[in-house]
């Protein structure tokens, strides 16, 4: 196995910040920090009492996003995927994460932390399918 260059300390520290965010949302608001749930919940519109804090969360997320964008610190996909693939993948991520009740943050970080059996099943499933997809696209039909 060939290992890519990576920085273990920033990876670990970044993960800990993500964990701190999840703990803060639970401690203060009593909520699971699932990004798919937060975004999907926003579709309920103004009549949902949770819309305001969900918007506040997204607004907070946009601060580092805009800052990184301004200094040019964000990379897009390394391979030119083309619009159809981007749209299909986005659609699958949106539809699938709502159907399966969670994504990498909700099931992966929050669910596994509270030893949820559903989250464990979800994480194993999406990691496995993600891995197979990467294998197929990189090693079976080029890319």
């Amino acid at each position: 196995m060939v290992i890519a260059e990576f920085s273990p300390l920033t990876a670990l520290a970044g993960g800990m910040l993500i964990g701190a965010a999840a703990v803060l949302l639970m401690l203060a608001n009593g909520r699971i920090m699932g990004i798919a749930g937060i975004l999907g919940g926003l579709l309920n519109g103004a009549r949902d009492p949770d819309t305001s804090w969900r918007l506040a969360f997204v607004a907070g997320l946009l601060v580092p996003a805009l800052s990184a964008g301004l200094v040019g610190g964000l990379k897009g996909p390394a391979v030119d995927l083309g619009l159809p693939v981007l749209l299909a993948a986005g659609f699958l991520v949106g539809f699938g994460s709502r159907m399966g009740n969670g994504c990498t943050s909700g099931h992966g970080i929050c669910g596994l932390s509270r030893l949820s059996i559903r989250s464990l099943a979800a994480v194993v499933t999406f990691m496995l399918v993600c891995g197979l997809t990467v294998y197929a696209s990189r090693h079976l039909w080029g890319g």
Partner: peptide
């Protein structure tokens, strides 16, 4: 099924 669909989209991009 939902998690599998999500994993497929995640792996594509």
């Amino acid at each position: 099924v939902g998690s599998a669909l999500f994993g497929l989209g995640w792996g594509l991009v």
